[in-house]
Amino acid sequence: MTAPDPRLSINQATIKHADLATALAVTAEAGIEAIGLWREPVQEVGLATAARLLAASGLRFTTHCRAGFFTMPEGPARRAAIDDNRRAIEEAATLAAAGAPGSTAVLVLVAGGLPDGSRDLVAARGRVRDALEELVPDAEAAGVTLAIEPLHPMFASDRCVVSTLGQALDLAAGLPAHAVGAAVDTFHIWWDPDVLSAIDRAGREGRIATYQVCDWKTPLPADVLLSRHYPGDGIIDFASLTRAVVATGYDRDIEVEIFNEDIWATDPAEAVRRTAEGFAAAVSPHLESRA
């Protein structure tokens, strides 16, 4: 078997039903060098134990998923959300310090949808900006980059009012790039007619915090959240998107993040193997011009 691409990172969501120890083990045993973790499995074992397990695995840490969800008006719920984001920043910093050399302290933010009873997208996005401004000092103190992740517009009402990479960059404008960047996720942005210029802008502004890949294929399932596929199994043009990201000088790890019930039901080691295979065929050929 060909060795996996050294820039491939397995986002833990791809093998969701594996506990943290198993996720680390099957990733390392497959010869993959990096992993992105999710907060829930980390919290199940405790941050200190998670950091110890990560260090023992020898894997690089690429992202911590996820925080955000702060579009609600000021009040107790918003204060609780901001405090939870501060805890997530601490988690990301601790895990990045525990990972192998080359680990990155990146916390992925999903903004949140419209508050109950609201139709005001503009106000909701304004509260995202307010939250970023409030969290920047914490992120800077911890050495963490907050990565705003735009989600496909089908999630705008209930999950994320930030739908394009351009919107994410607008929200980050004026804030320090080392503290606030963007997640470039192929599943969410492939459809955007302005995506290539937005990737170029993100590169010029130094805001590509992470590049994540998976594929899109129709028909979508009833739960559209679970409609992601292995790279190469759908219709996304990984050539143009990957080359655009590489052209910005982005030379760090690339995560595969998949939400799919059938893939989750697959043996984790097999899912990791298939992920590496898909990545090698669909993404790796377009990394040759890496900076």
Rank of each mutant, 00 (worst) to 15 (best):
A25S: 14
T27S: 09
A28L: 13
A30L: 06
E33H: 03
G36N: 08
W38F: 02
W38V: 14
R39L: 05
E40M: 10
P41R: 12
E44P: 06
E44K: 11
V45T: 07
G46Y: 10
T49H: 10
A51P: 11
R52Y: 04
L54K: 15
A55D: 15
A56K: 10
S57A: 06
S57V: 06
S57L: 12
L59S: 08
R60K: 12
T62P: 04
H64R: 05
C65R: 06
R66W: 14
A67Q: 06
G68I: 09
T71H: 06
E74F: 07
G75H: 12
G75N: 10
P76M: 08
R78W: 13
R78N: 01
R78C: 00
A80P: 05
A80F: 05
A81R: 12
I82G: 11
D83H: 09
D84L: 04
D84S: 12
R86W: 13
R87K: 07
I89W: 01
E91A: 05
A92P: 05
A93L: 10
A93S: 08
A96S: 10
A97R: 15
A100K: 15
P101K: 05
T104V: 09
V106H: 09
L107N: 11
L107T: 02
V108G: 03
V110W: 01
A111S: 04
G112N: 01
G113Q: 11
L114M: 07
L114D: 06
G117A: 13
G117D: 12
D120M: 08
L121C: 07
L121A: 12
V122K: 00
A124P: 00
A131G: 09
A131R: 04
L132K: 00
E133T: 11
L135F: 07
L135C: 01
D138I: 06
D138E: 11
A139S: 00
E140G: 03
A142Q: 14
G143V: 09
L146R: 05
I148D: 02
I148Q: 00
E149G: 13
E149Y: 09
P150T: 05
L151R: 01
P153G: 03
P153D: 01
S157N: 11
V161T: 06
V162P: 02
S163H: 15
G166E: 15
Q167T: 00
L169F: 06
